[in-house]
Each structure stands twice: as structure tokens, then as C-alpha cells.
């Protein structure tokens, strides 16, 4: 397994390089620049700015400068948040995204797996259909509808929970964003769990185990759960990366200073370094999470070999 991990990590280096190159070319190909506004700057001011940020150099020089910086852990200054470097912004925003995304994922796993299991144990009954209908609703309603509805219901009308992130601190402000972020995931996970579990429960070895008189709980937790959760696991890798790097919509609605809104605002404002920094960070995260998922596969399903 160590050899496998090392090989995968080495293979990640060219991948990440290509990601950086592609992202660099893409952000630079977009029209406009980081200092463009309706209030166009006088020529000499603009020249001073471009020089100060090395944007007057030829593109290849800028790219080498950037890659050189990244290799030493320097993602450069942000053009849009000029008192901060990109590294500092990511370091500020990621723990928040990690906390909210992580809690949402835990909630989604707990609710989703339970709901999926309940449905799988009583397939094609009213209970199953009810759970699946609910989860279908959860998948279909976009977050940008769910989040404002939750705000209106629990924040404004009932006044139980704070509406926004800044200000009235404490743990209560986590509830609405975490729930809003978790709901669509609950639905996905429930459906995957149900499908996986139904398939496993019909397999021969489960039938044998049942014939031996094992109680349903043992059957489910010891024998069926691990293979049934493989589809959930393969879904989780990218889902966790996505949810951890922030949900733009949730962050906008609740005013949470997470990574997602930095990414979107950075792209819209041509904050080249900020966008690139988050892309590199995100790509690294995906590579690592995919690796972790592959390793977990082998743990969950002994038929899978890491080579």
C-alpha cells in the first residue's frame, strides 16, 4: 500500500502542473484585467500598477515567477484584497469551509445512510416510497431555493436562529448553513445507500447468512454494510472536495467568508492570483481525497486490490 500511495503521489505532480498551466492560461485568456473598472485609470497610474504586480512582464516570465512562488509556498498577493496574500486568504477561509462542509457531510452521512437503509429493508413499501420521494425532492430543489426558504422560516418568521454569519456569534449561526448544505447530499446518499444495500441483500452470501439464522442487525452491520457502501464512498470523494472548498450559494446567502465566494469573486474581478491559488488548492485536495477513497475501497471491499 505504501508503494501504491507513493506512486499515486508522484503521478499527481504532472497532473497538478498541468492544472496550474491550464488555469493560468485560462484566467489570462479572459478579457479584462484585475484593475479594470468603469473608472478607467490614467495611463501612468495603470502602468505603475501593472509594474508593481509584475503584470507588465511577458506571460512566460509571469508563469515561471508564479510556479516558482508556488513551489516555495508563496501564492502571491491578492489583487482584490490588497492587504492580504492569497495564502493568508486561503488559510482564513478554508477552516471555515472545512468546518461547515465537514459538519454538513457528517449530518448528510448520518441521515442519508439511515434513510437509505430504512428504505432498503422495506423495499417497495409505502415507507420506501416515502423516503425516496422525499430524497428526490431534496435532489431536485436547488440550494439557492432551500437556503432562503430556511432563512425566511427559521430566521425571519420564527426568529429561532441567526440569519447571518457576522455578528451574533456562537454555534447557532452554524445550524442553517449546515442544514442547507447537507439536505441535497442527504438525498444523494440515501438513494445510493438504498440501491447498494438492496443489491447486496439479494446476493447469495447474505442469503446463506440469513439461512444460518443470523439476526438482521448483525447481517446489516457486519456483512452487508461494507460492500453496500462502496457506491456511497466513490460519491464521497468528489463530494467532500466540493463541499469543503465551499458552496458559493450558501456562502452568499449567509454571508460566510469561505473559499467559494473568494473563488467566484476572484474570477469575476480577474483576481488572477486568488483564482489560481484556489484552483491549485482544490486540485491538490481532490488528488488527495481520491487517493484516500481508493485506499478506503480496499479496506471496505477485500476483492479490490491496490496495484
Amino acid at each position: 500500500m505504501l508503494a501504491f500511495t507513493l506512486r499515486r503521489l508522484l503521478a499527481a505532480i504532472p497532473t497538478l502542473f498541468l492544472v496550474v498551466l491550464g488555469a493560468f492560461l485560462l484566467v489570462r485568456a479572459a478579457p479584462g484585467g484585475p484593475f479594470d473598472e468603469e473608472r478607467v485609470l490614467p495611463a501612468e497610474l495603470e502602468a505603475n500598477l501593472l509594474a508593481a504586480y509584475h503584470l507588465d512582464e511577458p506571460l512566460p516570465t509571469q508563469f515561471l515567477r508564479y510556479v516558482g512562488g508556488v513551489l516555495t509556498g508563496d501564492f502571491g498577493p491578492s489583487y482584490g484584497y490588497r492587504d492580504y496574500t492569497v495564502g493568508q486568504l486561503i488559510a482564513q477561509a478554508f477552516p471555515l469551509s472545512l468546518m461547515i462542509g465537514g459538519l454538513a457531510m457528517l449530518l448528510a452521512l448520518a441521515l442519508g445512510i439511515s434513510a437509505g437503509a430504512v428504505a432498503a429493508l422495506r423495499p417497495n413499501t409505502a415507507l420506501d416510497r416515502g423516503v425516496m420521494a422525499l430524497s428526490m425532492t431534496g435532489i431536485s430543489i436547488p440550494v439557492f431555493v432551500i437556503a432562503p426558504l430556511l432563512v425566511l422560516a427559521f430566521g425571519v418568521s420564527l426568529d429561532w436562529l441567526p440569519v447571518g454569519w457576522s455578528g451574533s456569534g456562537g454555534i447557532s449561526r452554524l445550524v442553517l448553513p449546515v442544514v442547507a448544505l447537507a439536505l441535497p447530499q442527504v438525498a444523494h446518499i440515501a438513494r445510493l445507500t438504498r440501491a447498494g444495500l438492496i443489491e447486496v441483500l439479494e446476493s447469495d452470501y447474505i442469503r446463506t447468512a440469513r439461512a444460518q439464522g443470523l439476526p438482521t442487525s448483525t447481517l446489516l452491520l457486519v456483512h452487508a454494510a461494507r460492500p453496500a457502501l462502496v457506491p456511497v464512498l466513490s460519491y464521497l470523494g468528489p463530494a467532500i472536495a466540493g463541499i469543503l472548498t465551499g458552496s458559493v450559494v450558501i456562502e452568499q446567502v449567509f454571508g460566510i467568508p469561505g473559499l467559494g465566494q473568494f473563488f467566484v469573486n476572484g474570477a469575476l474581478n480577474r483576481d488572477y492570483t486568488l483564482v489560481l491559488g484556489i484552483v491549485v488548492f482544490y486540485a491538490t485536495l481532490i488528488v488527495l481525497l481520491n487517493l484516500a477513497v481508493d485506499i478506503l475501497y480496499a479496506t471496505l471491499d477485500p476483492r479490490i486490490r491496490l496495484t
Binding site: 432562503p148 432563512v151 425566511l152 425571519v156 426568529d159 441567526p162 440569519v163 449567509f254 454571508g255
Partner: peptide, 13 residues
């Protein structure tokens, strides 16, 4: 988002 702002105003925040 002005809509988020308005929600917070209504919530007294």
C-alpha cells in the same frame, strides 16, 4: 446580496 441584507435587517441584525 441586498436580499440577504434585507433579511438581516428584518431579523434585527
Amino acid at each position: 446580496q441586498p436580499a440577504s441584507e434585507y433579511n438581516r435587517y428584518r431579523a434585527g441584525e
